[in-house]
């Protein structure tokens, strides 16, 4: 039983991009705010803060989740991956490489959410059809591109990663 009265803080421990992190926070704070402000990973973006735009999408225990629609407190004991956790040894993740190759983004503010959704999609369905790609990505808004280049980015990722997992 944990109880935190108004004005007091809560210890939350979680794994972020493979590292264990503990933060002492006001329990009303969203996971997105804690990732950005306490953990200092500002690659996760806030576009609407009410769960529509998808820019704040992260992977929570491997599944995509809106970090604006979670309290950080709810992430206790979970393992999350943010956009900063994708590259290994300075080399872009295949999805990042693919999005670069396809010139997928313009302002790229929405890009972390799209890439997280893409990773989740390809994890489940390594060789999706265009319709499946569009359906999956329809939870992420982009205002610059008209989406075609992002869809091509996913298709390029399939080529890089192979159609099976």
């Amino acid at each position: 039983m944990t109880a935190v009265p108004i004005g007091e803080t809560l210890d939350v421990s979680l794994t972020v991009n493979g590292a264990t992190v503990s933060v002492d926070i006001d329990p009303r704070r969203s996971l997105a705010d804690v990732i950005r402000e306490e953990i200092g990973l500002t690659g996760t973006h806030l576009g609407c803060e009410h769960g529509v735009c998808g820019a704040c999408t992260i992977l929570l225990d491997g599944e995509p989740a809106r970090s604006c629609l979670m309290l950080a407190a709810q992430a206790e004991g979970t393992a999350i991956t943010t956009i900063e956790g994708l590259a290994t040894n300075g080399e872009m993740h295949p999805v990042q490489q693919a999005m670069h190759e396809a010139m997928s983004f313009q302002c790229a503010f929405c890009s972390p959410g799209f890439m997280m959704s893409t990773i989740a999609l390809l994890d489940d369905n390594p060789n999706p059809s265009e319709k499946e790609i569009r359906e999956e990505l329809s939870g992420n808004l982009c205002r610059c591109t008209g989406y075609e280049s992002i869809v091509e980015g996913v298709e390029t990722a399939v080529k890089i990663m192979g159609p099976t997992r």
Partner: peptide, 12 residues
Amino acid sequence: MKNPQFNYHRPG
């Protein structure tokens, strides 16, 4: 658009 204050309970 930030949550208002509340008393947080995480029952066991």
